[in-house]
Each structure stands twice: as C-alpha cells, then as structure tokens.
Design a protein around this nucleic acid. Structure first.
Lengths: 278, 278
DNA sequence: TTGACAAATGACTCGTTAGTCATTATTATA
DNA sequence: TATAATAATGACTAACGAGTCATTTGTCAA
C-alpha cells in the first residue's frame, strides 16, 4: 500500500515533466528505486496508474471546491473563495495540474477520457450551483455561458503560471477574476449557450450515477481500512443512516464533519453531502 | 511537391483523430496509398511533417486575422469580425484546430514548442493592437488581462464545438463574445497582469526576429516558385522596395494587395505589412 | 529499342517499450 | 532452526515504430 503511494508520487513528477506517453515504466521504477516487477505488483498496467492518479486528485479537488461552495455562508466572499481555492489547489498540486493540462482531450485510453468528462461535469455542476445561488434569476439566460467563461478564465490563467516560472499572487488574481465574473454575470444580455445546447454537450453524464449502492460499496471498503476510532464509528453510523434514516440532520452533518478532513474520506464526504442534500 | 500535400492532408486527418504520437508513419502511408519510403522522399522525419503542418496553418491563420484587424475601418465591426474570422477558421480547419488543442503544451519536440510559442506571441500581438485601437487609454491598466480573457473565451468555446458534434452558430457566438469583451474592457478596474508580468511570460520572443534579411530570403524562394505573372512581378517589385525604398506607400499597398490572396503569399504579405507599417 | 535517370518500394535494422515469470531474498511462523 | 509464505527481482518476450537502402518500376530522349 505504501509502495503504491511511492510509485504515484514519483510517476507524477515524471508525467508532469515529460508527459504520460513519453514516460516509460522503466523510468518510473528507476526513479522509485524499485524493480520493474514490483511496479506490476501495485498496478496492473501503466494505464491503471494514470487512472489512479486522476481519480486521486480529482476526487480531492472536486470535494474541496464543493465543500467551500456549500459551506461559505457569506455570498460576498463566495466567488473569491472559489477562485482562491481553485488556484491554490492548482498551485499546491502543480505537477498534477500540469498533467491535466497536457493530457487534456489527448489520451488514447477510452476509460480515461470518460473519467475526465465525468469530473468535468461534476465541476460544472459545482460552478452552476454557485452561480445560481449568487445571481439567481438574473442569470437565467446566461448562466451556461458564465460557466464556460469561468472555466476559460481558469484555463488561461492556470496555463500562464503553470508553464512559466513566474511567482503568482493568488489573492490578487482571485480578486481580479471576481470582478470580471461579476461584470459578466450582471451585464451580459446576449447568451450563446442555451439549456438545450448545454445538455447536448453533457450528454454522456450517465457514467457512475453514484447511487446509494455504489456509495455503500465505497464506504464498506473504507470502514475496513480505517483505523482511527472516531472516523471509523462516524463512517459506520453514516452507513446505517444510508440504509435506514433515523438520525437528525444535525447529527448527520456533525458526523460528516468528523470525516471531512481525513484524507481518505473526502470523497465519501462529498458523495454523502450530495445524497443527504446537506 | 503534390505528394507532399497529399501526405499533409491525410496525416492531418489521422493526427486529429488519434494524436501525433499515436499515429505511425506506416499508418499515414497506408492512408495515402503510398510506400513508407515515399514518405521519406517528401519529409526528412515525422517531426518535420508536424512542423510543416503547424507552419502551414498558423501562417495562414495569423496572417488572415492580422489582415482583418488592419483593414477593418469601422471600429464597431472590428471585434465581431475578429471573433467571426477566428471561429470560422477553426471550423473550416477543424482537424488542424483539434491537433492544436491536443498537442497544446505537449510535444517532446523542442523546436515545435518554440514554434508554437512564437505563433502564440504573434497572435497576442494582433489581439493587443486591436484592443489598443478599440479602447485606447481606457484599458491602459487592464489590456494584458483582456488578452488572456479573449484567449480564454476562444479556448473554451472552441473546445466545446470541436469535440462535440453540435452544429454551431458562429454569428451568434461572435456577437455574444463581443458583448462580453466590451463589458470587460469598459468596466474592469482590478488588473492582474502588469506590463512587467506580461513581458516575463513572453520572454523568449527572440525566435525568428523576422528581419529584412529573412524576409528577403523567403521572398526569393517564392519568386522562383511563382508562375502567375502579376503576383511574380509584384513580388519582384516589393523585393526591390525592400532593398531600396523608392515607391510611394500607395503603390506598395497596391502591390501587397495583389499578392494577398495568393495561397503561397499570405505569409510574405503579413511580414511585409509589418515591415512597411501598413 | 535501348540505356540513363528518377521515382517508388518494402523488407530490413535497430532501438524501445509494456508486460511476464522463473528465480531469489525476506519475513513470519512453528 | 526449519519451513512456509510473501515480496521483489530483472532477464526475457513479443510487438511495434522510425528510419534506411538495395532493388524494382516507370519515364523519356536518342
């Protein structure tokens, strides 16, 4: 298990520098100081490795941003916090962000493309819920355009500081983008992306409906692995709540809070927040 | 020479579908109905092919947009025409645009990365000159941000219609982006990218200063190849003008107009417009 | 028809890579 | 200490791809 993490860390560095295709398993194992055979004890294939990396970081990223959007009460702060957290995350995990940019749309692996689409959709959902909350009916016609504008901002500005070695002021950048986003939200009158168009783009959303049964499966897996008592009990209680709702919303929310910051529970926490509508 | 074009066309299709790395020379030659050896009669290597493709399309694209920006007199139309031409070009050459998106930042080839950066800088220059003309001192503090916003819009909206099979209304999209750009230009007060920052990003601009001597070299090459009498004479006169300015601006402009629409002269025409400041 | 020249071919070389598996080293258990 | 179980190794295979070059095919002038 610890070996798996080592491989993921070292591979991340190489992928960010050279790209996925251009990095051989040989190189990865050398960089880890292990043998080639040892690699295949942890991962069935090179593809499984990149998939694990994508999953690991995207789950972390999405759940982090989603938590911020759900738990920032002050509307005035929300957009700033959203941008700040996004760029801060890109900055902290810049190697992963680089891979994301490089492998964008690329990748021969079909499963990977689907996964990327899936996370992209999730992220769009988070943005959309934020926009709807902040601007309400004001952006009824233009909210889908706003999503793409926000994504466009994130894309260009990320590329900028990921691929040049210029130190960046996340605070200043976020403030600047908050102003731009507000401007567009409040004054745009000519929409391009209608709801129909938006749904057409997002058609293959099916991938992992993440229904009750799937959440249960993931939870059982984690409960087995978990050693910390508080987190473990919280997980068990939440699992029971999932099977048969008996606890009050306050208790459920508290239990979620217990597991939220455990590195292995962020994703479960995100799924449950969605399921319990908290 | 005609073989070269065939290879470029067929390779473009495959690269757009599968990516550059994932496409073998074997596949390209099979798709062309020629032998592997024949490929190497036209191109020294696979890298030379992708470089030729990038050069071919980027020259065409940049010079087209530059011409529009320089020759649209009505400021009210300019931004619309800019967006329209951009998306129209992406649409017409969607296979190339796909490659551009996929190979973005990627690519092991150093020469290619430099070339891409170079064209990126040229495109930014065109955008900047347009912004300065349209908004003047109004955007003194925010013009560099505006460049990246425009590029961000282009990026997200292109991805959208390049990788989903939804038919697009370029007219509507352009109008929508014109409004957004105007909003940002007129009301943004919080800049993020200062002039210093902008220059830091663009540091390695050196690549092909495209000075007089280089233009001359390209011209001599083209003069030899050219068969059409009017274009040929225009080129010869322009070459003389480059060596020793004797003609009036009106005549020079007319000569440029003569060659502008010849598929092989667009790039020269662009370089000369810059050199003669027309 | 012939011979000289150019165009085109594809079998071949050489390097590289993902993935396997018989063998060896390490650790746990009795 | 002996034995079993598990972890780790790296030489090996099979496949593929870029680029080469001896040979064949086509063209055209004499």
């Amino acid at each position: 298990m610890i070996k798996k993490q080592l491989i993921m860390e070292k591979a991340l560095e190489l992928f960010a520098k050279q790209g996925f295709e251009a990095t051989s398993v040989q190189q990865i194992t050398e960089h880890c100081g292990i043998s080639k055979g040892a690699f295949y004890l942890s991962f069935k294939s090179k593809d499984e490795l990149i998939l694990a990396l994508i999953n690991h970081f995207m789950m972390q990223f999405i759940s982090e941003i989603d938590y911020i959007v759900r738990n920032t009460n002050d509307d005035k702060e929300l957009l700033y916090k959203f941008y700040y957290a996004t760029f801060d995350s890109f900055h902290k995990h810049s190697d992963f962000a680089k891979i994301l940019m490089k492998e964008q749309g690329q990748s021969i692996n079909k499963e990977l493309i689907l996964k990327m689409h899936y996370y992209d959709r999730l992220f769009e959902t988070v943005i959309l819920s934020m926009i709807e909350r902040l601007y309400g009916k004001e952006v009824k016609q233009t909210k889908y355009d706003l999503i793409y504008c926000i994504k466009g901002f994130m894309n260009t500005y990320s590329t900028l500081f990921l691929f040049s070695n210029v130190p960046l002021d996340v605070n200043k950048l976020s403030k600047s983008l908050v102003e731009k986003t507000n401007l567009l939200a409040r004054h745009t009158t000519v929409p391009f992306i209608s709801q129909e168009l938006f749904q057409m783009f997002n058609h293959p959303m099916n991938e992992e409906g993440t229904k009750k049964e799937q959440i249960l499966e993931i939870m059982e897996q984690k409960i087995k692995e978990m050693v910390e008592p508080i987190e473990k009990e919280s997980l068990i209680l939440l699992k029971e709540q999932l099977l048969e709702p008996t606890l009050s919303p306050a208790i459920v929310k508290g239990l979620l809070e217990n597991i939220r910051n455990h590195p292995h529970c962020k994703w479960i926490s995100y799924l449950l927040r969605g399921y319990f509508k908290l």
